[in-house]
Nucleic acid binder design. Structure first.
Lengths: 182, 182
DNA sequence: AATTTTGTTAAATACTTATTTAACGTTCTT
DNA sequence: AAGAACGTTAAATAAGTATTTAACAAAATT
């Protein structure tokens, strides 16, 4: 080993990984993580496992930054903790199955969106009902309230659909419709 | 009109809209828009149409802020320009079909992610091929390069899936699997 | 042609978020 | 029990974004 061919190969290997690391880091903003977390995940994607000091070393960033980044990535289930006897250091491994990351991230996101909006609509419809119950309200206003109500009912169709989408992803049913390999 | 019942009804109507506006604005961060754009869309959601001055008025914000916000919303196809004769002012209407907004936003997002990463992988694999071609490279290194290559091939399965997902949303095929109404 | 209306771009300010440095608490080692 | 290793929290700094004010350009009205 350590001849010129090997040196060249090592360089090429790093170069190859570099392309992918850079791009993953760049597109990670989509997953609502900080640049540090993006770079970190992209780096871990090509490692078996890493501890905080290795991360700090590899990325040239502070330890608290690594600590918070890795926590955020854990929330998105893009990184998981590895229990490793012998060492006191915590070690982590990147989730390399992008399908899993997709599932975890978007389901969380859409669930929140659906839940919050459904709740708001519920409140709004409750309030509108109070208008409908009052027979002395001008028909013009009644009409307007009715239109808003209809619009909300319409939007509920979307949020319910979103919930079913989430369910079908979580249950992996979606792959029956859209297989991982065509 | 203008009796106490009507006054009450008007208030209730605004209250009802308020709940929904607030929540939509809050969950709009998901769509990568600024708070101003979020509030704007949420407001427009209950209006037939608005021009820049009405937006400024209604939200109590500056006109350039409205201008840039509305442009961003147009990019996401969440707002469209309405051509309106007589007035020199540009008027805009919110896209009220959330399915359309979903489609437009996520397809754009995922397309970008898939395209960029596929391109990076292509470059990386090209570089790795150069290692494979050199017979003098240590088998250990060869092995490592091979593993990276396999990992990239694996991830391509995901990106291709993402592309097919986008296609099935754009073509509305997805609604055959997951109907808007169950 | 001069003035007003409308919308956008550019520069400046304000605000928010990310990252670092410093301090802390816990657990392990000696 | 004292000191070192490790990770996290808190405060301070740095960086990045959003928003506003000011200046500009285009088009329309007078």
């Amino acid at each position: 080993m350590a001849n010129s061919h090997d040196e060249m190969a090592k360089e090429k290997l790093e170069e190859a990984k570099g392309y992918v690391i850079e791009t993953i880091a760049e597109t990670m903003d989509v997953y609502g993580v900080t640049p540090a977390a993006g770079k970190l995940y992209a780096t871990m994607y090509f490692k078996e496992q890493m501890n905080l000091d290795e991360m700090r070393e590899e990325l040239g960033m502070s330890k608290p930054s690594m600590s918070t980044s890795v926590r955020k990535l854990q929330e998105n289930e893009m990184v998981k903790k590895k229990f490793q006897k012998g060492s006191r250091k915590h070690t982590y491994a990147a989730e390399k199955d992008f399908f899993h990351s997709f599932m975890s991230y978007y389901c969380q996101l859409w669930d929140r969106e659906a839940k919050m909006n459904m709740e708001a609509i519920k409140q709004a419809e409750f309030t509108l009902d109070q208008i409908f119950e009052d027979e002395n309200v001008a028909s013009e206003l009644m009409e307007e309230a009715r239109e808003i109500y209809d619009q909300l009912e319409q939007s509920k169709i979307y949020y319910r659909w979103l919930e079913r989408l989430v369910a079908s992803i979580r249950s992996e049913e979606i792959y029956e419709f859209l297989p991982k390999k065509p």
